[in-house]
Amino acid sequence: MACRNTTYHRPQSIAEACQIAGEYGIRGRFLAGGTELLIDLDSGRDRADQLISLRDVPDLCEIRIEAGELRIGALATLSAIATAPDVVRALPALREAILTMGGQQIRNRATIGGNFCRAVPCADTPPLCIAAGARLEIVGATGARTLPAADFFVGPRQTVLDRSEILTEIRIPVPPAHSGASYQRFSLRHGMAVAVAAVAAVLQLDGDEITSARVVLSAVAPVPLLVGECTDLLVGRKPVPDLFAEAGTIAAAAAQPITDLRGSAEFRRELLAVLTPRALNEAAARAKGEAA
């Protein structure tokens, strides 16, 4: 691996980790699951010579519901999240999103914190968290802060974190009654393939009226894209397929996709026009308590 000539640190606390990270600045990287970082270091896409392992930092793997929030420690592995009873109960769509990612071996090592912090545009856990109104807990050398997940991403592989900061927890409000979520993802292979386009949707209904709606797109913009126009369109309306199709058109227009190996920008927009209504339909069905 090209991350040779690296120094390895294994801090025992968050404070120590932040301190080491602060010391080395751009030369340092936090090592969690490593499933993306090691590949990026090997390919030369990322460069660093100080690896700061978080494996011994306590209390960052917990998954629990507390005070109306689903709290997921940043070091919780994708497998742990997908099988956690609290997740399955509160936000099954998160489990579904996770099961589209990598293979079992990757999910056993990769962490949700890593999925956020590596900040690749096609990451699969952030869109649903953003749609569900998640907040992120961040600790740094100079203190702690909290911010909406929607504000975390700056660009491809860029976040608001400074070098000494660690994302410690993702806090997702437990979806209230009559709400539903869905994650619809398109990839070129049945498993082990990154998303070409994906849509997360969270809806809340009051009777036959949508009272809140958030649609977040993945893999079609530099960052996960919360489409405000979709919220504007949907709230106060009846959850019917025609409306969802219209939301799809809006989502397709709002996206800023690129053309790459996996598909053209145009294709990605077409996919959004299909995936968005599918996500909204499923979210609505779940909000109504229908099996979906």
Partner: peptide, 27 residues
């Protein structure tokens, strides 16, 4: 592949299947 794409390096670490090509031995 030594990049986590093929799984031929799978071993079981503390009960879980992992790609040994994506796990530093120190970890």
């Amino acid at each position: 592949c030594e990049a986590g794409d093929c799984g031929s390096c799978t071993v079981i670490v503390d009960g879980e299947a992992v790609n040994s090509c994506l796990l530093l031995a120190v970890e």
